[in-house]
């Protein structure tokens, strides 16, 4: 993340996303697959780290192996064939609103205050002792005599697929395939995200 100044002099927090060039690795059509979609590959991978099955798949489109292969359903912004390059300015424009899908930062085993936003006990006195961040009651006793499924408790937090909606594209750098998106995007630095329009 970084920040830029707009014309009014306001500082705007934004994220730099490298979004291309992507290669079309498969074209799915109504006839062959029952739906239309475009499969895009991004970021070069080493040949020795790619399975033979995938190598064959990349051979079909005549590209080098890619780290990420993502399918976009009903991709109709640009007409593309197998092996074609998709660049940033073909798909996105400045001022567009996009959704960013990524894997959020893993936070490890966390209590209910951080994980579910429980308020905890706000008193340190009045008989409280080591209960400040405890979850409280998790249900009644002999009826229902069980803890309901989905009861919010402590546990592994973060590291999940998260979608952040309606982020504005502030600027596009076509030669470097960079996009400047307003606000924060799920995940740590250098991680992969999907931008959808």
């Amino acid at each position: 993340m970084t920040s830029i100044f707009d014309e009014a002099g306001n500082s705007i927090a934004c994220t730099v996303v490298e979004a291309g060039p992507c290669v079309v690795t498969q074209v799915k059509t109504e006839d062959s697959d029952g739906y239309t979609a475009l499969q895009l590959g991004f970021s070069d991978a080493k040949v020795k780290n790619t399975s033979k099955a995938l190598l064959g798949h990349f051979d079909k489109s005549g590209t080098t192996p890619k780290k990420k292969v993502i399918e976009f359903r009903d991709f109709d912004v640009v007409e593309k064939g197998l092996g074609d390059l998709v660049t940033v300015e073909e798909v996105f424009a400045e001022g567009d609103l996009v959704n960013a899908v990524g894997t959020s930062k893993g936070k490890g085993f966390q209590g209910v205050v951080k994980r579910h936003g429980f308020r905890g006990v706000n008193d340190a006195t009045h008989g409280q002792h080591n209960r400040q961040r405890a979850p409280g009651s998790i249900g009644a006793a002999s009826y229902p005599a069980k803890v309901f499924k989905g009861m919010r408790m402590a546990g592994r937090t973060g590291g999940k697929r998260i979608k952040t909606a309606n982020l504005e594209i502030l600027k596009i750098f076509p030669d470097k395939n960079l996009i400047l998106v307003k606000g924060a995007i799920p995940g740590h630095k250098g991680s992969f995200v999907i931008l959808e329009k």
Binding site: M1, T2, I4, F5, V16, E18, K171, F173, K176, L178, L180, K189
Partner: peptide, 13 residues
């Protein structure tokens, strides 16, 4: 990081 430096270079006066 390079990408961030590039963007900053382009946009800061």
């Amino acid at each position: 990081m390079d990408a961030i430096n590039f963007v900053q270079e382009q946009l800061t006066k």
